[in-house]
Each structure stands twice: as structure tokens, then as C-alpha cells.
């Protein structure tokens, strides 16, 4: 008979050659390769302190006839550790999603089961096709003071573990970052930059559930960010920029009334408008030199992916 046998890393494994007697003459192979006699005790195969490399197909053949008497697929792994579970609403008030992962791999198949209880009511968590380790729940009720309790149980052949989160409806509301952030110089204004962005497309009803925004900006030459909070609108004019210095700008979003700030948006770069130098030669004057170079118009030669270390969104 052939089947899968799961064993823990570090275990000692004994395999019998099917119904063959202890003293029968047999040959054992691992993935088709004969196993050294030193691993045999009579017709039993003894594997000590197995590690991951021991995983594979083990076959036992009767000595003289070479009949296959036993075959198993050995899978060496570990029981699951407590899974990491996170729930979040980035499309409030439609619903929220929960996603999970294991802190360390188990090397063998795991199955996950999630239960979502609101008060006394069990709610359905519809699994997403992708990513696999995620499901989403539709709010049946809004503005509830009753907590949600989400329990994730992970099981594999070697063990079982679970984790539970309890939270209020409002606590997990965290929008996605603002999108389409654009920064432009303001002609004839050497200290201004015009920044605009859009609500995250995942936020379903910005009219009834308006977002407020947090803008941070700094010249590349400095480390210190400047911040400004904006309670409505999706644009802002920076009026205190250092003339001629390239700036890096990011935006974050938060529901006006509840929840936490999003992560920072992708960073954009811009340099305020600068005066044309007067002493240009004739040839230079003919060339139409664009004084301002703004990443939003031309992708910078190298796009600096800024540290997304969120002051806001972590």
C-alpha cells in the first residue's frame, strides 16, 4: 500500500515492509536509490532524527522476487505555529477583510478555517481567489458597539493552532493610500508647489464617508518633514518651499470620523519654478528651455522608492 506519511523534524521513524516478517530479506529504496543496510533492523527501515531532506518516496521490495511490498511518501515538517491574523476595512462601510500568514513555514500542507462572530451572529467570510490567505466580510450592521470576534484555526497532519482577534467596527477602518499624487511648480512662484491627489479607488463613498488627508513634504537635502493636515479637498498648495530645491511629497488618508491613517502614498518629486537666468547668449535664448523639471511630467531617471516607513500608516 502506498500513502503519505507525515513526521516531525527530529523524529525517529520506523517503517515496516508491509506484511513482511521482521526477518524477511528485503531491499529499501529512497527515491529509487538503495538504502544502506546500516539503516535496517531486520526488514524494518529506521530513520533517526529526520530532517527536511529525508522527505521522499520510500519503497520496500521482497528480497528474491523484487515484488513491491510497501511504498510511502514521507513528508517531514512541523506543526503550525500561532498564525498571524490581521483584519482591516479599506472600503468602509462595505465590509472588511481578514488576511493571515504563518510566522514560519511548516513544509507540509496546512488548512485554514476562519470564524467571524458579531455578538451572537456568525458571519460569512468569503474567501478571495487571490490572495489565497484572505477573505472578506460584508457589514450587515453599521455603527454597532458590539465587538467582532475573528478566530483563525490552522491545522496540518502534525498539529493545530489558532489565534483570535476582537475589535470594534471603527477600530479597523484604515483606507488605502491616496492615488494619482501629482506635484507641479507654480509659474512665477519660486516658493510654491501645487499638489493634487485622488481618493483611493477602493473607498466606495467619499461623499457620505469623507476622507481627510495628511501631506508631508521636505526638500531632498533635508531629513525633517513638514506636515499639513487637510480636512477636505484633494489638493494643496505648498507656499513655503525653498526656491530651486527638489522636494519629495507624500499623502496619507483617514476617514473623517473613525479609524486610523492609511500608509503613505507613493512619493512624488517636484522642484519649484525658478527664474530664467538673464545673461543667456542668443543661441541659448532660442532654445526653449523648460526651467522646471517635475517628475510628474517626466519620470525621473531613477525613481527613488522612498522609505514607506509610515509615520502615519504603521
Amino acid at each position: 500500500d502506498s500513502h503519505i506519511q507525515y513526521e516531525r523534524v527530529g523524529a525517529d521513524v520506523t517503517m515496516k515492509c508491509g506484511s513482511m516478517d521482521w526477518d524477511a530479506a528485503v531491499t529499501w529504496t529512497a527515491n529509487g536509490t538503495d538504502i544502506d543496510e546500516s539503516h535496517l533492523n531486520g526488514s524494518y527501515l529506521i530513520l533517526k532524527n529526520v530532517d527536511l531532506t529525508r522527505s521522499g518516496q520510500y519503497s520496500c521490495y521482497e528480497g528474491s522476487s523484487w515484488h513491491l511490498k510497501y511504498q510511502t511518501y514521507l513528508r517531514v515538517g512541523t506543526p503550525p505555529k500561532e498564525p498571524v491574523l490581521m483584519c482591516r476595512s479599506n472600503n468602509y462601510p462595505k465590509g472588511f477583510y481578514c488576511s493571515w500568514h504563518l510566522p514560519t513555514p511548516t513544509y507540509i500542507p496546512n488548512s485554514f478555517n476562519i470564524s467571524v462572530i458579531h455578538g451572537t451572529k456568525e458571519m460569512v467570510c468569503e474567501k478571495d481567489i487571490y490572495p489565497k490567505n484572505r477573505c472578506h466580510i460584508r457589514y450587515l450592521q453599521l455603527f454597532s458597539t458590539v465587538k467582532y470576534k475573528v478566530t483563525l484555526t490552522v491545522t496540518n497532519a502534525l498539529g493545530k493552532n489558532s489565534t483570535t482577534l476582537t475589535f470594534d467596527e471603527v477600530a479597523i477602518v484604515k483606507p488605502d493610500p491616496p492615488e494619482s499624487v501629482v506635484a507641479k511648480p507654480v509659474p512665477n512662484n519660486p516658493r510654491r508647489l501645487e499638489v493634487s491627489w485622488q481618493n483611493p479607488s477602493s473607498w466606495p463613498d467619499p461623499e457620505s464617508f469623507p476622507l481627510k488627508f495628511f501631506l508631508r513634504y521636505r526638500p531632498l537635502i533635508l531629513d525633517q518633514w513638514q506636515h499639513v493636515e487637510l480636512s477636505d479637498g484633494t489638493s494643496h498648495t505648498i507656499t513655503d518651499a525653498y526656491a530651486g530645491k527638489e522636494y519629495i511629497i507624500q499623502v496619507a488618508a483617514k476617514d473623517n470620523d473613525i479609524g486610523t491613517w492609511s500608509d503613505w502614498s507613493v512619493a512624488v518629486h517636484a522642484t519649484p519654478w525658478t527664474e530664467e537666468p538673464k545673461h543667456l547668449t542668443t543661441e541659448a535664448q532660442i532654445t526653449d528651455t523648460t526651467s522646471a523639471s517635475t517628475s510628474s511630467f517626466m519620470p525621473p531617471p531613477t525613481t527613488k522608492i522612498c522609505d514607506k516607513g509610515a509615520v502615519v500608516g504603521s
Binding site: 453599521l142 458597539t145 457620505s208 470620523d257
Partner: peptide, 22 residues
Amino acid sequence: GVLRELAQWAVRSARDLRQLTK
């Protein structure tokens, strides 16, 4: 319980009034 519900009502009321202006 009263204060918790009132806090939730305040959020709901703001949402309700925004709906009315839509």
C-alpha cells in the same frame, strides 16, 4: 453603555446628515 452608544450615534448622525446633503 449609554456613552458608548452615544459615541456611535454621533458618527452615525454625521453620516446621516451627509446623506441628506447628497
